[in-house]
Design a binder for these strands. Structure first.
Length: 253
DNA sequence: ATGTCACAGTCCCTGTGA
């Protein structure tokens, strides 16, 4: 089973790239972030033609998360069920695995109210992880907008005083690990940076100025079956790329 | 730090968010 996560930065703008990637790689499940679409615009039919059933939690101009599956999709949940109206998390059961696609708030700056919102949101995410059914394989993937360690940041000095690397944010990611999840790519590639995002500006991609902020977190059941994990940085090249690259996890179930 | 991109509004440019 192949589970992937990709922040596409507008599914409307990215559809040709996403369609080509799905045809080329044929993952069983893809977790998508930043569709930036209403449900009415989501390409349900085009995805079905590629063999994917899908569930979308759309908002319109901002946010928007989705789950695509070739192995069935049921028991879809949208949001945390607490009245938070930003479309940032969706869950479903696919092929016997409980999966969530999440788009963690950016935070903007350490003194911005949006940063406090980010930390509150991550605390709610930890609650969701702690309350999961541990008898069912579980995967949480998405754009966490946090580089978990200095290895995940091309230049920690440049990021001093910025979001994405602050101790409270990193602590919030560790809380997800305390709750039983493993950062799959980092566990299987302990020494490689494995960046997943490069700013569009300043030729950041070609200069290697990246961050690893897109993660696949898996429970002990899935981790025991993990075969491989990698970042498809080639997807960051070429015509109209997303600023994020897909993260892939392969499991022998 | 910022050499970009995507979106919406009301358009052939500006503000916002990332």
């Amino acid at each position: 089973m192949i589970i992937t996560t990709w922040n596409v930065n507008s599914l409307t703008a990215r559809w040709p790239r996403v369609e080509a990637w799905l045809v080329e790689n044929s993952p069983d499940v893809m977790l998508v972030q930043e569709t930036k679409q209403t449900d009415a615009k989501f390409p349900f039919a085009a995805l079905r033609a590629l063999g994917y059933e899908s569930a979308h939690y759309g908002q319109g101009q901002w946010n928007g998360v989705a789950i695509l599956s070739k192995v069935g999709i049921s028991d879809v949940t949208r949001g945390f069920g607490d009245g938070d109206e930003e479309a940032r998390i969706i869950g479903a059961t696919c092929g016997g695995v409980r999966v969530y696609s999440c788009y963690v708030p950016n935070g903007r700056a350490l003194d911005d109210p949006h940063y406090a919102y980010k930390l509150e949101w991550l605390a709610k995410l930890a609650s969701l992880v702690r309350s999961r059914d541990t008898a069912t394989p579980f995967a949480l993937g998405g754009d966490f907008n946090v580089a978990p360690s200095d290895l995940d940041c091309y230049d920690p000095v440049v990021f001093e005083g910025s979001t994405h690397v602050s101790e409270p944010e990193r602590h919030a990611i560790r809380e997800l690990e305390v709750a039983g999840l493993t950062d799959l790519t980092r566990a299987l590639r302990p020494d490689e940076p494995c960046y997943t995002w490069w700013d569009y500006r300043n030729g950041a991609f070609h200069r290697g100025w990246g961050l690893r902020i897109d993660l696949l977190l898996v429970d002990p059941i899935l981790f025991s079956h993990a075969v491989r994990s990698y970042v498809d940085r080639d997807a960051r090249k070429g015509e109209k790329p997303s600023d994020h690259a897909p993260v892939i996890g392969e499991f022998d179930l």
